[in-house]
Design a binder for these strands. Sequence first.
DNA 1: TCCGAAATTGTTAACGTAAACATCGACGGA
DNA 2: TCCGTCGATGTTTACGTTAACAATTTCGGA
Lengths: 328, 328
Amino acid sequence: MADVARLAGVSSQTVSRVANGQPGVVESTREQVLTAMRELGYRPNSAARSLRYGRFNTIGVILFGLSSTGNSRTVEAIATHAAAEGYAITLIPVGMPTQDNVLGAFTRMGELAVDGVIVIIEVHLLDATAVALPPGVHVVVVDSDAGDRYPVVDTDQADGARQAVRHLLGLGHRTVWHLSGPAESFAAERRASAWRAVLEEAGRPVPPVEHGDWSADSGYHAGLRLAGVPECTAIFVANDQMALGVLRALHERGRRVPDEVSVVGFDDIADAGSYLPPLTTVHQDFAEVGRRCVRSLLHQIHDGPAGPGTDLVATRLIVRGSTAPAPA
Amino acid sequence: MADVARLAGVSSQTVSRVANGQPGVVESTREQVLTAMRELGYRPNSAARSLRYGRFNTIGVILFGLSSTGNSRTVEAIATHAAAEGYAITLIPVGMPTQDNVLGAFTRMGELAVDGVIVIIEVHLLDATAVALPPGVHVVVVDSDAGDRYPVVDTDQADGARQAVRHLLGLGHRTVWHLSGPAESFAAERRASAWRAVLEEAGRPVPPVEHGDWSADSGYHAGLRLAGVPECTAIFVANDQMALGVLRALHERGRRVPDEVSVVGFDDIADAGSYLPPLTTVHQDFAEVGRRCVRSLLHQIHDGPAGPGTDLVATRLIVRGSTAPAPA
DNA sequence: TCCGAAATTGTTAACGTAAACATCGACGGA
DNA sequence: TCCGTCGATGTTTACGTTAACAATTTCGGA
């Protein structure tokens, strides 16, 4: 910057003014400075800027597993909206979701150049880390029940599950079986309890819950077990990938979908419409979740901390070819 | 930091030494400083550090579309390995892959606190932007043919395609049809040209190429067309998602896989083993690509710029249930 | 007892930027 | 003509950190 000032024959302050588009610089001077900038390939040093302003214009995202569909789409939306507001995104991946690792991520975060953090991790891992969060750092949590401690943005898991189960009951199925996610997952738990609540409310029997780990493979194995249960004609699967595995298992066992068994998934991933048969599933608006995260976090950064609370994003059932009226 | 120094009754320099674990601080002093740090919740200001050191310890990743399987897994690997080396990852998403947007991303990058950039974008979009790249910023490019201008890390697309086509020919198929990606994609182009080369080398007829946009849906439509071609008994599809669509189309048209038609995909995404039937596909090691990107970039940052050149990551064919000997 | 070396701690300056304040010159009105 | 005002530009300072050097203390040995 000093070099630019020297070359343009002005003070560094004037260069600063030009760089930031501030008024009070006469046109001819501005031209000279811009020319000098180009000539020297000047680019402002953001570290110095941050130091001066006390802000980094950066949001940190702590997450476990970027490859899972939901996470990557949420992060993409976060990145897009943050960029629109002039904020960059810094990714802090957590290798394995152990408390130690999460704690480590929070510690690293504390040392990073970040104005706020969006946490996309099952919240029970946050218990021990609440203390470790640096006081000046704002937080938004996704997909957890931390609503009493931090602002939370999340898909309305329960309502999505309710829509799925009611759809199946509406088709005349006597009851609905459920393949849930891992026991530690709050998303899985909420989907499962909404499923149970609808059945109980309707006075239907509640079959035993199967558990998978979200993978198609685990869905396949659970599907093999369910295929052996003759009275099982409707299955609500907690995500689309496991549903894919279920479809394969049913197919291998000769149980036709949707004629003999109806299947509903959750997520509406891009491929769900191309499964055999195309999957009826609950659509999650990951982009909207990301958008609201950014909005909430920026609001905190600019206007001070926000109280806890939960912001739910609506879901909707997408009916495709994997559900049909119950067999006679 | 000054507060900590005051509370601990030492100079700020001593605080700095403690914070960085430098030697030459007596144990009792260190304790006092650590206590003061805890009490005041001190955390070092990374902007000041960056300013002092002239480095940000941050890597930028410019990409289009985080949701595509390959990208998210590559980014995850990049983030993991960068973190292990003490580097953070800053994401710069490009909304639509137009030259303007890419140019904008590079400009933003220039203003960001970044020591180097990994570019995960089809390279023809880089043509006009080569100039815009700030001189001091190191670059590694993924998935493109920029090998003459920048260091490139990429999957060995051609070899993967060769393995796929040879596998099908080895099963006795007279020739192999191809569903390619979008015409602008270099990855698609390389897979297609390797496919063509193997066929020509083997003296087989080269069927017309179908084009999709990587989505399952586009695969479905192309699949419907191919299903109408009786002599088509083997299809090499340029990615797994389109292969999923092809499987669905063949199924709907009553062409059995693999008995009547064999299908090979590319990527080996997590779900590929759960398709109906489980998909034979070319495995890409996205994690390794990410690892090498980071290695190459850090090498540049620490030891000076590297010349152009291409670093190819091996692929391997995973044979599952979607391929079988040609029908008699 | 005193001196020199080593260990520990303190002081100064600089990284690049921008806010706050100071200066300078031009212009208009009395 | 002189003065006040305003617009353009320059100067000073501070942001938080750490390298380089300076100062102080401690300790062993002659």
